[in-house]
Structure formats: structure tokens, C-alpha cells
Simulated scan of single mutants.
Amino acid sequence: MREPTVSSLMTREVISADVETPFKDLVELLEEHAISAVPVLDGGYPVGVVSEADLLPKEEFRGGTEDAPGLFAGRDAKHRFEQAAGLTAGDLMTSPVKSVSPGTAASAAARELAETGVRRLFVLDDDGALVGVLSRRDLLKVFVQDDDELRRTIRDEIFGRTLWVDPDTIDVEVTDGVVALQGRLERQSEIDIADHLVRALPGVVDLRNRLQCAWNDTIHPRQTEIFG
């Protein structure tokens, strides 16, 4: 039940460019491979990224022939104007590279993508060499799971091996990744553990937890006296 890591989800064959790759070749790379960005390598190590957004200033400012942004223009506009005159990947790239290690948990990588607003993270090994790329789409692979396989995992791993509960006493249904649980456990704490483990299981879209308990061990005896 271990959470998937970046290594298990990433794309290993990465289309890349060199710092000296010309502007037109960069455009052709993106078009040919239907991708929106490429890492820029220097001596085999990533030093930046060229995306579609880094190439568009060439058209926005017509290669630098349009007027430069005014004195009070923002930093982004001035940066785009400088990119408009760029000829190679080294001129156009955005640095540093947003990266992640192969052993990073999928949830941590998803959080990094959300917080930084980037579309992809480049995967670097301990030496800083490029070994893959992880996109938003790659992370969504965790939800492409067979319902029957999810059901077996919940029954056998969560209830059978983790909670030591006879799986046949719990009704587990999975439809399009949505899990429904029904049955009776000894303690409320066991229900809480099951709830947490099922929700954290890769591929689970949602949980309908209708489990009941014989004893609510999460309420302190003194609370029972006061509110009972």
C-alpha cells in the first residue's frame, strides 16, 4: 500500500535541447513531439527550460522591432522583450529548473506542481543528471486503476492484513474509483484507521464510509459521563 513515487509515474524518455539550440529548432522540437517545453542541457545537466511562453515574445515584439515596454512596465514585460531578441535556448530559457527526485512521493510532487504553478517537474538523480520528467498528466495515472483490483487491495491489505479483520465481514464496493464500505468493526478507532487508509489509497476517488462500531473508544470516559 505504499504511495507511488515519482519514479513509477514519470516519463523516462525526455526530449531536450542544448544551450546552443537555435530558436527555429526549438519551435520544431515542440511541434514535432507535441510538447509544450523542453529542458536545456549544458554538459548533460539541465540548466533551464524553454517553454512555448518563452518563444512567444519573438512574435509579441516582432523580434525586437516593436517598441520596448515603458519605464513603468512590469518585470515580466521587460523580460519578454529581452527574450524577443534571443537566438538560442541559452538566450530564451527560464532558470532554474523546477526539479524533483525519483524517490519523492506522488502527493509531494503534486503539491509542488500546485504551489509553483508549473506544468511539469524535471526529475534529477543524486548527481543532478536528468532521468525523467513528471507532468500533471503523469500524476493522474494513479487514478487509472481497475475497480476490482482496488476492492481486493482494500479487503486483503487494509482489512485483512493491517486491521486483522475478516474481509468477508465487510462489504466493499468500488464503482469508478468511489469506494463504499459497510459492516461492523469492534472499535471506532478501527473505523477511523480504515477511513484514513482507504482515502489515501492510490486510485480512490472518494469514500462512502458506512461502517459501524460496537464500542466508541475515541470518547474519554469522563466525556461519556458529562454528555451521555
Rank of each mutant, 00 (worst) to 15 (best):
L41E: 08
D42W: 08
D42C: 02
G43D: 07
G43W: 05
G44D: 07
G44F: 09
Y45D: 05
Y45R: 15
V49D: 01
V50C: 10
E52F: 00
E52C: 03
A53P: 00
L56V: 14
L56S: 05
L56A: 12
P57S: 11
P57T: 12
P57C: 10
K58V: 10
E59N: 06
E60Q: 05
E60H: 01
G63N: 05
G64D: 03
T65F: 05
P69L: 04
P69E: 03
G70A: 13
L71R: 14
L71H: 02
G74N: 07
G74Y: 04
R75T: 13
D76E: 15
K78T: 03
R80I: 01
R80A: 15
F81N: 00
E82I: 04
E82M: 06
A84S: 15
A84R: 01
A85H: 15
G86C: 13
G86N: 06
L87W: 01
T88Q: 05
A89Y: 09
G90R: 07
G90F: 02
L92N: 07
M93G: 12
M93N: 11
M93I: 09
M93Y: 09
T94P: 09
T94Q: 02
S95A: 15
S95Q: 09
S95K: 09
P96Q: 03
K98F: 14
S99E: 09
V100S: 12
S101A: 13
S101F: 04
S101V: 10
P102Y: 10
P102R: 03
A105W: 03
A105F: 12
A105C: 00
A106K: 07
A108P: 01
A109G: 13
A109F: 13
A110L: 14
A110P: 02
R111G: 00
R111K: 15
R111N: 05
L113C: 08
T116F: 11
T116P: 04
T116D: 09
T116A: 08
V118Q: 13
L121N: 12
F122W: 09
V123L: 10
V123E: 06
V123G: 08
L124I: 10
L124D: 01
D126C: 00
G128I: 13
G128N: 11
L130M: 11
L130W: 06
V131S: 04
G132K: 10
V133A: 11
V133W: 02
L134K: 10
S135D: 06
S135L: 01
S135K: 03
R136G: 15
R137M: 05
D138V: 08
L139H: 04
L140R: 03
K141D: 12
F143S: 02
F143A: 11
D146S: 14
D148G: 15
L150E: 06
L150K: 05
R151Y: 04
I154D: 07
I154Q: 06
